[in-house]
């Protein structure tokens, strides 16, 4: 079973695992990645610490782009199911942004597919992050070469 959701509200990880496994007894391993808003204190002045993160997306394209990514994961690995939930809107440090769950008979497929899914989500789905600082200023996050490299390794 593949579950995809783009939503403003938070997700309940335990409930999502229950929905994915759904009483099945042929699952040998679950992979899980949760992306969280990090309070970035790397900026030199404290007023540039992140107060919030706002996720914008392309509503009429986003789900289709994620479907393409999960279909690719299912083509590459023997998955029993997977779940991708991506939040949009304004989020505070410590809040969840994204959930990737995979279920497979064996751990390697679950672990590898989880890493693949989050790497591809970062570079092949139409989301944009805007950081909001303590001083009220904001900036759009720039794409990272390291994310492209992480995508290319698959």
């Amino acid at each position: 079973m593949t579950t995809i959701s783009v939503q403003t509200e938070d997700f309940d990880v335990a409930a999502e695992i229950g929905r994915l496994t759904n009483g099945r007894t042929d699952i040998g391993g679950l992979g899980c990645f949760i992306g969280v808003v990090r309070e970035d204190t790397s900026h030199e002045s404290p007023e540039r610490a992140i107060r919030a993160l706002t996720l914008e997306h392309y509503p009429s394209m986003t789900v289709r782009a994620i479907e393409r990514i999960t279909a690719e994961a299912e083509r590459r690995w023997d998955l029993i199911g997977c779940t991708v939930i991506h939040r949009v809107g304004r989020m505070l440090p410590g809040e969840n942004i994204v959930l990737v769950l995979t279920a497979a008979a064996h751990r390697q497929a679950a672990l590898d597919a989880t890493a693949f899914l989050i790497d591809w989500l970062k570079t092949k789905a139409p989301f944009w992050k805007r950081e909001e600082f303590q001083n009220g200023e904001g900036v759009w996050v720039e794409a990272k070469d390291t994310d492209d490299a992480a995508t290319a390794r698959w």
């Binding site: 392309y58 009429s60 570079t123 789905a125 944009w128 720039e142 794409a143």
Partner: peptide, 12 residues
């Protein structure tokens, strides 16, 4: 056609 323009994506 619907044509969209945007910066490189930064989700996940």
């Amino acid at each position: 056609d619907e044509v969209a323009f945007f910066p490189p994506v930064t989700g996940g």
